[in-house]
């Protein structure tokens, strides 16, 4: 049986890093926001994570590895 994957919102930055957020899973704990070394993420009005400065993202994936709710994914796209 094929799995049905949840829908996500993706943002692509200048340095070819793509951040995808599944709002449905996010509980707004703020762990990814606080431990991002480049302050790429922030909490929105709905108290869920959103990307505020995509161009600063280095693709270290600390948010993805720490997220307890599996709501954020970082993908480094190949050049060109």
């Amino acid at each position: 049986m094929k799995k049905k994957y949840p829908s996500s919102k993706c943002v692509i930055g200048k340095n070819n890093v793509e951040i995808c957020i599944i709002k449905e899973f996010c509980k707004g704990c703020g762990i990814c926001v606080e431990f991002c070394p480049k302050d790429v993420l922030g909490l929105g009005k709905d108290l869920k994570v959103e990307v505020i400065n995509i161009d600063a993202c280095t693709g270290d994936r600390l948010c993805e590895l720490r997220c307890p709710d599996l709501a954020i994914f970082v993908h480094k796209r190949k050049e060109g």
Binding site: Y5, K27, C29, I31, C67, P68
Partner: peptide
């Protein structure tokens, strides 16, 4: 993912990590 998430754990719970 298709039937269980989001999980029941509290926001910020370390068990998810």
């Amino acid at each position: 993912v298709d039937e269980r998430l989001p999980h029941i754990l509290c926001p910020g719970c370390g068990i998810g990590s």
